[in-house]
């Protein structure tokens, strides 16, 4: 009975985990017993695990992770600091919206990854070039989501605060800011994904260190287990950041607990 209760309580996590285990087991068994393993073109979980252990203990994994993280944190921080105020001003001031919207929409819609080589030429292969790329990719969700959040502020609630004697400052603090928060949170999750793409693309083009460089180098030299170590670390980081965001959202916006946040 104990087991059943435990299962029912953690059903979601257990079932989610089991699909991973099943996939890994199927992969392992397939390449061990069915398909002959050609290490140039295939690899399997057990080899990846060994490579992971080597990389983590003696290799460059932590160093590469630190290098990539630094560029990510710089670019991402700037996209928050610039994107949110810019989106807010666009939402409040119609003229700013009209002036900037076409330009920003064009940039947002075009595949910015295409100008990565240009950015690398201008800003170099080091921290700066990658941070600029992360910034350019991550800033748009902040701009557009903050903008949409400000626009979404309910006119009824604005009138409520005004009717109780609220001044312009009160409208911003008591209505507009809180209605924008969920939008910013959703934008942050988008921005995390785009920022990680920025890092990897930057390091693919030209770099001598970082997770993206490690993946690309391992691929070029047919060291598939090492390549997968990079990919898996990257997805773990993405999942971790997104999970942290979700927790943060629930803490900051408990009134949305009734709605499904995904």
């Amino acid at each position: 009975m104990k087991v059943k209760e435990y299962y029912e309580e953690h059903q979601r996590a257990l079932l989610g985990l089991s699909s991973f285990i099943f996939l890994a087991a199927a992969w392992e068994l397939l390449l061990t017993y069915v398909v002959p393993l050609n290490p140039f073109f295939f690899t399997k979980p057990s080899l990846i695990a060994i490579a992971f252990k080597e990389q983590a203990l003696g290799g460059n994994l932590w160093h590469n992770l630190a290098i990539s993280s630094r560029a990510f944190i710089w670019g991402f921080s700037f996209s928050v600091v610039i994107g949110i105020p810019l989106g807010a001003v666009m939402g409040w001031r119609r003229r700013v919206e009209y002036a900037l919207d076409p330009f920003l929409t064009a940039l947002y819609a075009s595949p910015l990854v295409a100008i990565a080589p240009l950015l690398i030429v201008v800003f170099g292969v080091g921290l700066l070039g990658k941070a600029v790329l992360v910034f350019l990719l991550a800033v748009f969700p902040f701009i557009f989501n903050t903008f949409a959040g400000v626009k979404s502020a309910d006119p009824l609630l604005i009138n409520v605060v005004r009717s109780f004697g609220g001044k312009e400052r009160d409208l911003y603090l008591k209505v507009i800011l809180p209605s924008t928060l969920p939008y910013i949170a959703a934008g942050t999750r988008l921005a995390i994904g785009r920022g990680l793409v920025g890092i990897i693309v930057g390091e693919f083009y030209a770099a001598s260190e970082g997770i993206g460089f490690a993946i690309s180098q391992a691929g070029d030299t047919y060291r598939l287990p090492e390549m997968f170590v990079g990919i898996i670390v990257l997805s773990l980081v993405a999942v971790l950041l997104t999970e942290v965001m979700r927790k943060l959202e629930i803490t900051l916006a408990p009134w949305r607990a009734g709605e499904e946040i995904r």
Partner: peptide
């Protein structure tokens, strides 16, 4: 607006947060 008057709104107008 002034504190000598107060409105009860049709759609309640409660701040959800």
């Amino acid at each position: 607006p002034g504190q000598d008057r107060a409105m009860v709104f049709q759609e309640f107008g409660l701040l959800p947060w």
